[in-house]
């Protein structure tokens, strides 16, 4: 599904900053992977490259067999729309649109007609238990509800991968568990999910943990037994 070969990325803001120094990573369809690292380790940059929000300087990135490199803005927008679902730390819902409209927005940009995309949005909201909140504005929802709306928005395009950037960062531990449970459940239904986090508890819920340090992959651990570590149990996240 995802093939990263020797990815390099340097930011040239005054002083050149070599952020990613040769990343090699393979992620199969249906995996539930977390990328962990301290701030400044390059995990956000890696996420941006995975999400086609940023370019890389060297190496190659294949997403579902397609080389993602030097795409035009329109093409990149198209790929993002069709292949990637984003879940952000701060939810990033559009404040003046209600839950239903927020969820339906990606389909609007895909050109789906109004009736179909609203029906579909309602279906996804229903799946996440938010049907009765469909016509509420984001500021009338709790943090957990907002994140679930955001997940519904990410899922509605049936993306190849779901990219979650610190999905529990702005939530309390109770709702964090709920959101992680939800992601886990989605993964069990076959969704490929990549979570970027610095919280051990979040990472512990995933099946593979990629540790990034100073722009390099430190080590990759298979995390089959989710109860081996104290993190992640009973809402202990950090």
């Amino acid at each position: 599904m995802i093939q990263l070969e020797n990815i390099h990325k340097t930011y040239n803001n005054g002083q050149p900053l070599h952020v990613l120094k040769g990343i090699n990573l393979h992620i199969e369809r249906g995996e539930f992977v977390s990328i962990m690292g301290a701030s400044g380790s390059g995990k956000s940059t890696l996420l941006n490259i995975l999400g086609i929000l940023d370019n890389y300087d060297e190496g190659s990135y294949y997403l579902d067999g397609k080389l993602i490199r030097d795409l035009s803005e329109s093409k990149a927008a198209d790929y993002r729309n069709r292949m990637i679902g984003f879940v952000f730390q701060s939810f990033n819902l559009i404040p003046f649109k209600n839950a239903l409209e927020n969820v339906a927005l990606p389909l609007f940009y895909r050109g789906v007609n109004r009736k179909r995309r609203n029906a579909l949005a309602l279906e996804y909201l229903d799946r996440l238990g938010l049907a009765e909140w469909a016509h509420h504005l984001p500021n009338e929802l709790s943090g957990g509800q907002k994140q679930r709306v955001a997940i519904a928005r990410a899922l509605i395009t049936q993306p190849q991968i779901l990219l979650a950037d610190e999905p529990t960062g702005a939530l309390d531990s109770r709702t964090s568990i709920e959101v992680m449970q939800l992601l886990k459940q989605l993964n069990e239904e076959g969704q490929t999910i990549i979570v970027v986090t610095h919280e051990s508890g979040v990472a512990n819920q995933t099946n593979r943990i990629v540790h990034i340090k100073d722009g390099m992959i430190g080590h990759i651990e298979d995390n089959v037994n989710h109860n081996a570590s104290p993190f992640g149990i009973d809402g202990l996240m950090k």
Partner: peptide, 16 residues
Amino acid sequence: TVEFGIRRAIGARPTD
């Protein structure tokens, strides 16, 4: 800015 950023992230083309 944030709103337009979100729109771009979820697939709005420049022309949109």
